[in-house]
Design a protein around this nucleic acid. Structure first.
Length: 616
RNA sequence: GGCCCCAUAGCUCAGUGGAUAGAGCAACAGCCUUCUAAGCUGUCGGCCGCAGGUUCGAGUCCUGCUGGGGUCGCCA
């Protein structure tokens, strides 16, 4: 059930939000009525409207229980009195009311709905707030991949969420910058490099093998070799734990990391080369999924800044250096533990780099807020990061938010990259594309389109299915992905919504061909059915839905909203003639309504990064 | 073990302190000579993990318990 909680003051020049406007109006009139009826001031918080449940007559419901202390009367009587008073005061918008127990159900007038629809129809970007000059700047960090293996389903949830969140925040009137941090240095990439040196035989990326997959293959190769050596050492009588640390290939990788830090040219060259392969691979994946970034940060370029800042903080007594040279932040006073920031050999850890990156970003963008879209296994890390930055004297540490999304699990449990139990991002895209193509061919509705147009539509549908499937789930919750049966094209899915859009598009094309309707001309209709009113009411909720999605960092709210709107529209489409309607005014209303359902779906689904086709 | 998160229909998920807790999938039964059937309608399916508490009112807030996940690295 939609939100009518927060009533935002109508400040400055802003476009009408329609549903909020009527709610604010009703709220103030209710307060007036309470004063007139019982001579007492009520607080706005006591006046709470909600959407009337479908099984009752009316559109908006005032729950009168909180007002009984003021009225000192029975719920029914209180509701009755308020209903009459409101009807008198809001003759322009209300057409009637009914009372059931403590619920005062108000009916909005048909004329008011038609006025709402006209208002919505006049705005091409209905519900979207353009950021004003002084609107806050928000950085959204998403995807922080390691450069040693290709992206998998976990990254897919990450990039889809982050990208959608960025769109939602922008639509809520913020200046948004999308940033990425690439973990391009460290032992993980050295493992791939070493295995490539030993076993690569100069192989290079090709059409059959993307760069990120190639590098990932050698990461796996390293692991195989490592295991083999451990086994050999254990057979020679070494303790398994010790064998893991003493395996020659691991020692070699560690040596390679030291050489990297020392700037050894050959190591740096190989590192550059292999990272470039990975970036090209990532870029292709990002392009397939339709996500991008305004700026990339590389760990190799920020860790030294982080290190410097940490050492400065030691000098200021904010952080502590132990006898072995390691540097620590004492977070015990805040209920956390001590956290290491520099190893005893002076090398930096993940946290060090994050400190450097955060400062760099603050200098560059002067952000008001930064959101890290990172999995919930790193909650501790981000709590610590905020505390450390605050200790270092950065007031903006309080403006960092960790959007902690849940893991994606497979039917057999957690994904494990080393055991090959992963769903690869590129494979997933290709499989969905194949399924979309096959379904489209079976149905044969795209046959008239050019091959390019067909492919474009197949991609749209494949992505619509994946994105909607992932984004409709509350980001905070663990979600299950069953490759065999998870992604469907029927029911509560992206393609279901896309299909409805295609049907409306078809209606509008035919209406234009047959000159049944001129969209510029708003017909002089005066009446509409309950179903049509329901649709207008849903349309009018878009601005509040976007605002709430932005407030709660939850694109899922918009997915559910789109689904409800689509479902309701399909019922309407099924039960009402549109082109076939003979009354021209009624036909014009239905076409205008359909066009605006399509528009709102385009806008809202667009915030999920999902495009809607004209045909499918 | 400490801390954090989760538990709603067979499965996947909605559900903002308000009315008789909703969708989709799966199963079954209907609806295309008519605007795209990737659609619509109906049937079946629930001690909202358990036990207390707060409240006029609890799936929703609080406490305890049970079960599951995460985290507590000089890993990222």
């Amino acid at each position: 059930m939609p939100i009518f909680g927060a009533q935002r003051p109508a400040t400055g020049r802003h476009k009408p939000t329609i549903m909020n406007d009527i709610l604010n109006h009703l709220t103030s009139k209710t307060l007036e009525a309470i004063q007139a009826l019982w001579g007492q001031e009520a607080e706005a918080a006591q006046v709470q409207f909600q959407k009337t449940r479908k099984e009752f007559e009316g559109h908006l419901t005032l729950v009168v229980f909180p007002l009984l202390k003021i009225s000192r009367a029975k719920p029914e009587q209180t509701a009755e009195l308020l209903g009459k008073a409101l009807l008198e005061r809001c003759a322009d918008s209300l057409s009637g009311f009914n009372v059931i127990k403590g619920f005062l159900n108000l009916s909005l007038s048909e004329a008011y709905f038609i006025q709402m629809l006209r208002t919505i129809a006049q705005q091409d970007d209905f519900g979207i707030r353009q950021p004003s000059q002084d609107a806050p700047t928000v950085l959204v960090e998403y995807a922080s991949p390691n450069t040693n293996k290709p992206l998998h389903l976990g990254h897919v949830r990450n990039i889809l969420l982050g990208n959608s969140l960025a769109r939602v925040l922008a639509a809520a009137g913020k200046h948004v910058k999308k940033v990425q941090v690439v973990n391009d240095r460290g032992i993980h990439i050295c493992k791939s490099m070493l295995a490539y040196q030993k076993f690569g035989q100069g192989i290079e990326p090709s059409a059959e093998l993307k760069g990120d997959h190639l590098v990932g293959r050698f990461y796996v190769r390293f692991d195989q070799e490592h295991r083999l050596q451990i086994q050999q050492l254990v057979e020679q009588g070494m303790d398994p734990k010790q064998a893991k640390d003493k395996a020659p290939i691991l020692l070699e990788a560690q040596e390679m990391l030291r050489q990297w830090e020392a700037g050894e040219p050959a190591v740096r060259a190989l590192w550059e080369r292999m990272n470039q392969w990975v970036y090209q691979g990532f870029d292709a994946t990002y392009a397939d999924y339709g996500v991008d970034f305004d700026k990339n940060y590389y760990e190799s370029q920020t860790y030294e800044l982080g290190k410097r800042l940490v050492l400065e903080a030691v000098g200021q007594g904010i952080l502590q250096q132990k006898d072995d040279g390691s540097v620590w932040a004492d977070l015990t006073a805040d209920g956390l533990d001590e956290k290491v920031l520099l190893r005893s050999d002076g090398t930096s850890v993940y946290m060090t780099q994050d400190i450097g990156t955060a400062l760099l970003r603050h200098d560059e963008f002067q952000f008001d807020h930064m959101v890290y879209v990172v999995g919930n296994e790193q909650e501790y890390h981000f709590k610590a990061l905020k505390l450390i930055l605050a200790k270092m004297g950065h007031a903006w540490a309080g403006e960092l938010t960790h959007l902690s999304y849940g893991m994606v699990e497979l039917p057999e449990g957690k994904m494990k990259s080393r055991e090959g139990k992963v769903v690869d991002a590129d494979d997933l895209f290709q499989e969905m594309l194949q399924t979309a193509r096959q379904t489209a061919l079976e149905l044969g509705k795209l046959d008239e389109l050019s091959p390019e147009e067909q492919l474009r539509t197949h991609r749209m549908i494949a992505l619509g299915a994946v994105k909607y499937f992932i984004l409709k789930v509350n980001p905070k919750k663990t979600m299950l992905f069953n490759p065999a049966e998870s992604i469907d094209f029927n029911g509560n899915t992206g393609p279901f919504i896309q299909y409805t859009h295609a049907r409306v598009s078809s209606l509008l094309r035919k209406a234009a061909e047959r000159q049944l309707w001129n969209p510029e001309q708003l017909a002089a209709f005066e009446t509409l059915s309950a179903k049509e009113a329901e649709l207008v009411q849903l349309l009018a909720e878009l601005p509040a839905q976007i605002q709430q999605a932005a407030d709660e960092f939850s694109p899922a709210l918009l997915a559910n909203y789109c689904y409800e709107l689509t479902k309701t529209y399909n019922q309407f489409y099924n039960d009402f003639p549109i082109l076939r309607e003979e009354n021209p005014e009624s036909r014009a209303l239905r076409l205008l309504l359909s066009a605006n359902v399509a528009k709102v779906l385009r806008l809202a689904m667009g915030l999920l990064g999902i495009e809607l086709p004209e045909r499918m």
